[in-house]
């Protein structure tokens, strides 16, 4: 699959399997929120825009997204942690979720 191809500028080591699994889980949640199929969700990359880029992703949809992430990843997201940066792109969300999981 495409995810195996390391970017030229990325570190030579491929991503840790846990991080790939996390990215997949997040894509699956986003697919459920946006009502897109798995293929389209798989095409999301770190730069894919979310909040502020997709008109259907309003505050209520983002709130639902975060609550679902909490449920599926078994983490607690403090509302103080939620900022524009983490929600703006898929990469931001992924980095945030990874940091949360590493904390706990």
């Amino acid at each position: 699959m495409g995810s195996q191809q390391a970017k030229a500028d990325a570190a030579p080591n491929e991503r840790a399997p846990e991080e790939q699994a996390l990215a997949l889980e997040l894509k699956s949640i986003i697919a459920d929120v946006l009502g897109i199929d798995a293929e389209d969700a798989a095409a999301l990359n770190e730069d894919s825009g979310l909040f502020g880029h997709l008109p259907e992703l309003d505050s209520m949809a983002v709130a639902g997204l975060l609550t679902e992430i909490e449920d599926r990843l078994d983490i607690v997201i403090e509302d103080e942690d939620v900022d524009g940066e983490m929600l703006e792109t898929f990469g931001g969300l992924l980095a945030f979720a990874k940091a949360k999981l590493d904390e706990g």
Partner: peptide, 24 residues
Amino acid sequence: AKLLRSMLRARLIASREAGRAETQ
């Protein structure tokens, strides 16, 4: 509690976007 949490969170996100300072 989860329903309320989602609704509160939506309000906080919307407030932040609108530049209103509200805390949980």
